[in-house]
């Protein structure tokens, strides 16, 4: 369903899964380069099923050096939630867009105002890595009222009972964190990935994607083996930071797409 209000997250991801494909989620830091919007569109054309848009925060504690650098550069260019969402609003993409940011930006704007800003820009999902179940109640209701689905992150150390509650409260999809640590490229996939993916799949019917550290096609295929899909973020932003344009990002996304489709 493509309307001015964007694409709802969970139905779209379920449709991808039902069609027998793995879900490919990509990421771009909003405002990182003047042509970041082109990069976003190019990723979608190259086969991304959902794009996370990073709304940069000055103190991103769950991010490694790549996204830290992307965030500080975007902030230095004057990026803020309004400028990023304004740039997205006119975009017509056939996949869901999800905002990834830290809770203080939400808290500063106010829950209702922030969720309204997202939905008015056609952003139908949110990921707030520093907002755990204990603290997320008020945001969850405001988001739900605006039609914004809040995906929750599950960790390798999340105990079983908590995993159940987390899966129940997650909207859109459940984001399995591959490893103990922050975002950033890694040479190999963590052994915790498979274990967590299996636990999540046996706990919920919601789409499950695995992320953190996935740096190329082989790792993507491996991480997707027990899950419904993967998230690739830092590896793409590293290209962007190194001066590569939307074309190079699209090519990187296309390689991962092909690898996932081959299985």
């Amino acid at each position: 369903m493509t309307t001015a209000l964007g694409v709802a997250v969970e139905p779209h991801l379920r449709a991808v899964r039902d069609a027998g494909r793995k879900i490919l989620v990509t990421y771009v830091t909003g405002g990182l380069q003047p042509h970041w919007i082109d990069a976003l569109s190019a990723m979608v054309d190259a086969g991304a099923d959902l794009v996370e848009i990073g709304i940069p925060f000055s103190d991103p504690v769950m991010d490694g050096v790549t996204i830290q650098e992307a965030s500080s550069r975007a902030l230095a260019h004057g990026a803020n939630p309004a400028s990023i969402l304004d740039a997205i609003a006119p975009l017509e993409v056939p996949v869901p867009l999800v905002a990834m940011t830290y809770y203080n930006l939400v808290s500063r704007a106010g829950h209702r105002r922030f969720s309204a800003m997202l939905s008015e820009a056609g952003v139908r999902g949110a990921i707030l890595p520093d907002l755990p179940l204990e603290e997320s109640g008020p945001w969850e209701s405001a988001a739900a009222a605006s039609g914004v689905e809040t995906a929750l992150l599950a960790s390798p150390v999340t105990p079983d009972d908590r995993l159940g509650e987390l899966c129940r409260r997650a909207r859109g999809f459940v984001y399995g964190v591959n490893l103990m640590g922050v975002t950033g490229e890694r040479a190999s996939l963590s052994a915790t990935t498979r274990v967590l993916a299996k636990r999540l799949k046996s706990t919920t019917d919601k789409p499950v994607v695995m992320g953190f550290g996935i740096s190329g096609p082989e790792q993507a295929v491996e991480a997707a083996a027990e899950a419904d899909g993967v998230v690739v973020a830092s590896a793409l932003m590293r290209l962007f930071l190194d001066g590569q344009g939307p074309g190079a990002l699209a090519a990187a996304v296309a390689r991962i797409r092909q690898a996932l489709d081959r299985g």
Partner: peptide, 20 residues
Amino acid sequence: PTGRFGDFGGMYVPESLVPA
């Protein structure tokens, strides 16, 4: 258990740190 001092405090940490 929620660590609240009036409206302040709380436990705003990533899921990986919640058990700790």
